[in-house]
Design a protein around this nucleic acid. Structure first.
Lengths: 245, 245
DNA sequence: CGCAGCCTTGACCATTATCAACGCTGGTGG
DNA sequence: CCACCAGCGTTGATAATGGTCAAGGCTGCG
């Protein structure tokens, strides 16, 4: 929490992003949204901060004093085992919400993947605000419900899908979450490393690399660069993701 | 939804259970609770229903018309892949909450494991009630946040733990969720079959059976019956669960 | 008593992890 | 401007965890 550059600003970017904040689903429209007056009120509570790659938003075990709204870039959320094994539980993008905890401490860590910005709220102030603002609370409930549904889908992936199915699912889901997608839907931006993809999918970097190579060789995808690819055969990829091949 | 015996009653059992409803964490005390007046108000909206083993509360893909509060027994919540692979995303016990969905249809199925009871609410009525009752909404948000934290812990388990670690974690966590535990904390009731444990932990029944046998042989647990066991060496089991052995 | 369903155990196999070497790329400093 | 290096990614060989297939045992119920 100390290596972050905090700039108090009007938090303007959040506004555009807020409509689908915390949304783990494909259908952004169903997310709870707030009107401009409510967002103005929220702005007075927030600090805008700029994050460099690797900067820490939240550390597992630290007191849960803040909540965040990601306004640009991307963030990894993860849990660790004592021996260092890491499970990334989610990637967050502009509009996503972070930091709800049930106890006094965070049960997860969160770090910026690329240069990113976020709005930071003090937990107490935010909680009071939520209490006095039913619309905000409803939006929050909607987001958390979305996240829970996404988490259940990820459990299915981790518990029952093969490596090939996991990576196909990942490539299909990622663009829906990332509002930064530069062009058409078949274009996938991968701001994260292979190690992060592996830790998200419960695989090793070698397996991720091998499966991507196989997809490339079989013409399902085309690698534009290390961090960008195009889905050449979406139907086939969807079939693979659902275990129909 | 058709094979369920619905009995409109005052839904009294829910009251005792409600204090920790939906709670996926060890610390039941942090869960949002409602006072008696609020519960009375809720009772007027609910049908009490009795479920036999295998009875369906919710079917994946069906319109999301209801919400449930489990009042006794146990329920499995799961997702399926087209070829029948199943991932159980959670076991619910008395006091747990079920049925929040973001879209118009359920993204999961839920069935009774043993003879159980539940309170059923019409989604629209419940939503209106929530809108007019901030305390209820806050309690709901708290529960869903708990569930989300539990889901993240389960992702770590499914993505990064070995079979042995998964089963140790499962045996340690289960009693905290099950208010029916008959006696001391080292006593574990297993209302579910080996197949359900396997589908919850991302393993096969054979692996579950083998690991339980190994734990038994090494003296960490003692099998009292097929569906009941005692943890003989909790410290050792905790060490196994965290990968320290 | 016999059967069905669930569980356990064993033999074998496959997917994925591990270990190792090499290649690419981008940044830095001579 | 080029060479080197570090970090990341790819590829290959081998190993191990857990899955699959198969047989047999236990238990409860009709």
């Amino acid at each position: 929490m100390f290596d972050i550059n905090v700039l108090p600003t009007d938090c303007a970017q959040k506004r555009a992003a807020n409509a689908c904040s915390g949304c783990g689903a494909r259908e952004h429209s169903v997310c709870g949204a707030l009107d401009d007056r409510q967002l103005d009120r929220l702005d007075t509570l927030a600090d805008q901060m700029t994050l460099q790659p690797g900067d820490v938003l939240v550390r597992q075990g630290d007191p849960a004093n803040h909540l965040f709204n990601i306004t640009s870039g991307s963030v990894r959320v993860y849990r660790l085992l004592p021996d260092g094994r890491r499970q990334i539980t989610g990637f967050l993008f502009a509009g996503d919400f972070l930091g709800l905890a049930t106890g006094d401490t965070y049960a997860f860590s969160a770090e910026a993947i690329e240069t990113s910005t976020a709005c930071r709220f003090r937990r107490n102030e935010y909680r009071d605000e939520v209490r006095n603002n039913p619309a905000l609370e409803a939006a929050l409930l909607d987001r958390v419900t979305h996240d829970l549904a996404a988490a259940q889908a990820q459990m299915l992936l981790l518990g029952r899908k093969t490596a090939q199915e996991r990576i196909a699912s990942f490539l299909l889901d990622l663009p829906a979450h990332d509002p930064c997608r530069p062009g058409p839907a078949d274009h996938v931006r991968l701001p994260m490393t292979r190690a992060e993809i592996a830790d998200y999918l419960g695989l090793t970097i070698e397996t991720v690399s091998r499966v991507l190579t196989r997809f490339k060789t079989s013409g399902v995808i085309r690698l534009l660069s290390l961090n960008e690819l195009r889905i050449e055969d979406p139907a086939r990829l969807r079939a693979i993701a659902e275990g129909e091949i």
